[in-house]
């Protein structure tokens, strides 16, 4: 069984399942929207520079909404131990992890894109000139988040009150990711070029590599009985 094909099969199944009800996506988006609205009441937008504020709001909203969808990564597998079906197959465990990571990443990218769009409307900034740059920031951060989230979701899906556990584990570890994301977003929204945020993007890439590698190596340990 070709490794990449295995990864793709796992990812594809998840994505096809999601298209039945769009359950995960819709809950995630709804939560993101609600958080954005709450921010509108929580912060006085007239007193702050839009660029500073929007980045912060975006990068609180995205992680919190994302955790919701990430916890569900393994729900279908845990329900009737379908995970055993995956483990019994001639498939490397890490391929299961990467497949899940891929489908989670796609969901997070959709979340990111739509949240960016909503933010552009709520905060009144022109998305078009910054879309490519912001898109890159979202992509790189979503990757790190998905890498960590998929690994921790393996743990949390097994635990009772697992959603709480996922929040407790994922958010602290993701702090540097969020920090880098904000530091990358603010200059871009203020009209500066990608060159200025390159160090932060490089840090994000480094984190992506570290966390994905760790996930690939450690996933197998979490799936044993």
């Amino acid at each position: 069984m070709n490794y990449l094909r295995g990864v793709w099969l796992v990812a594809r199944k998840d994505l096809l399942s999601e298209t039945r009800t769009f359950e995960r996506l819709s809950s995630m988006l709804f939560l993101a929207l609600t958080i954005l609205v709450i921010f509108n009441f929580a912060l006085d937008f007239s007193r702050w520079q839009m660029a500073d504020l929007a980045a912060g709001v975006l990068w609180v909203t995205l992680p919190l909404a994302a955790v919701l969808a990430l916890h569900d990564s393994f729900r279908a597998e845990r329900e009737d131990q379908a995970l055993w079906g995956l483990l019994l197959a001639p498939l490397d465990e890490s391929a299961i992890y990467l497949g899940k990571l891929l489908s989670n990443l796609l969901l997070l990218l959709i979340l990111g894109a739509l949240t960016l769009g909503l933010s552009a409307v709520f905060f009144n900034f022109n998305l078009v000139p910054v879309a490519a740059g912001l898109g890159l920031v979202v992509l790189l951060n979503a990757l790190g988040f998905a890498a960590l989230g998929t690994l921790f979701a393996t743990l949390s899906s097994r635990a009772r009150r697992g959603e709480v556990l996922l929040h407790l584990l994922l958010l602290p570890v993701a702090i540097p990711l969020i920090l880098a994301a904000v530091r990358s977003t603010t200059p871009l929204l203020a009209g500066r070029g990608l060159g200025e945020v390159r160090p932060w993007l490089q840090l994000t890439v480094a984190m992506d590599v570290i966390f994905t590698t760790a996930g690939v190596l450690l996933f197998g340990y979490l799936t044993e009985e």
Binding site: L151, V173, P176, L179, L203, A206, F211, A214, L218
Partner: peptide, 16 residues
């Protein structure tokens, strides 16, 4: 697993 990830996070937190 959490401890290993946490420790991998330490230098990243420090630098960022």
């Amino acid at each position: 697993v959490v401890g290993i990830i946490g420790f991998l996070d330490v230098p990243v937190v420090y630098f960022s």
